Amino acid sequence: MRYIDAFCHFFPQPLWDRLLTLEGAGKGMGSRMRGVPAIFDLDERFRVMDLFRNHDYTQVISLGMPPLEAMGTPAVSRELAVLANDGLAELVRAHPDRFVGFLASLPMNDPEAAAAEAERALRQLGANGLQIHSNINGLPLDDPRFLPIFEVAARHDRPIMLHPSRGNEVTDYITEEKSKYEIWWTFGWPYETSVAMARLVFGGVIDRVPGLKVLAHHLGAMVPYFEGRVGPGWDQLGKRTTDEDLSGVLAGLKRRPIEYFKDFYADSAVFGSRAATVCGLEFYGPDRVLFASDCPFDPERGPGYIRDTIRVLESIEMPDEARQKINWRNAESFFGLTPR
């Protein structure tokens, strides 16, 4: 069985070298990522991938955290985006048997430049999609300044890959100064993704950009498990709110809220959880789920999530056609990959 890993992360060497010179977020990223060599060391990445040769395993690569817009000024983010996208494009050209495509990253703290870089990456570099995070330095994705970026993606028929972004500065309790026990990651990231999906829906972005394709990382985050709240719950939008009139929101949508959420795509990167995989597949169906591992952030620093995700999917009974769609066929059509 062939596998195309739709959401996994790598830093090309020119970008990696530049990141290590940065203060703040870049410096913190470097100190952590040095302990995960498969995210920047190409030989180590190939060693990990070679463990899955019998699975005909290839990757669509994208940058790891943090977002470029968190790395510095708009000028710094613009510089990093060019290094990132040129570097990822070169890796795809040099190693097509390993990397079948890449996702462009954008200087989202300069929306005009981000739209221009998206155009360049898709038109000139052959990017297969755009990686955008769940908030832009605290701004929601339905902020009008970001609309041209979504329009670029739709015009080129390339997807937005939605990645969560949240740090411990977002507290769990208003009486505290920071999130504890990495709650900001374990529960905060799925919440972040779900919030971003909701803002794209209720903020009207999905309606205003026909043909926009958005994939929500980690199997749609909270949405499949909370189907009842997203469905019948949001059908009553405004009934629970007394300090704001929300009566016009549902009337302004073209469909029920849950129908929009069903139109998102999702990936199988749920850290080897069979229960989450079954739930997500039940909600989205085989036509909208893509195989992904989130490599190399497992405890083994590379192969663990790939192996566990394959194992979970193989343990679930489904028709061969559905299995092929999830494992590689959906990725080919979703990213516009050249069939082989």
Rank of each mutant, 00 (worst) to 15 (best):
R155Q: 06
R155I: 00
R155M: 04
D157P: 13
M161V: 11
L162W: 02
H163Y: 08
H163P: 04
H163M: 06
H163T: 07
H163K: 07
P164Y: 00
P164W: 00
P164H: 01
S165Q: 12
R166W: 05
R166N: 10
R166G: 11
R166C: 10
G167A: 10
N168G: 13
N168R: 14
E169K: 14
V170G: 11
V170W: 10
V170I: 14
V170H: 13
V170E: 10
T171I: 14
T171Y: 10
D172M: 15
I174F: 07
I174V: 14
T175P: 05
T175S: 08
E176A: 12
K178M: 10
K178D: 12
K178G: 09
S179P: 06
S179A: 03
S179T: 08
K180T: 12
K180W: 01
K180N: 13
Y181R: 06
I183S: 14
I183K: 09
I183F: 09
W184V: 08
T186N: 14
F187R: 14
F187M: 14
G188A: 12
W189Q: 15
P190E: 09
P190A: 07
P190Q: 12
Y191D: 09
Y191H: 13
E192K: 04
T193C: 07
S194I: 02
A196T: 09
A196V: 05
A196E: 02
A198P: 02
R199D: 04
R199A: 09
L200S: 01
V201E: 01
V201D: 00
V201C: 02
F202W: 05
F202A: 04
G203P: 09
G203H: 08
I206M: 03
D207M: 04
R208Y: 00
R208W: 02
V209R: 01
P210T: 03
G211H: 07
G211R: 03
L212H: 04
L212P: 01
L212V: 00
K213L: 00
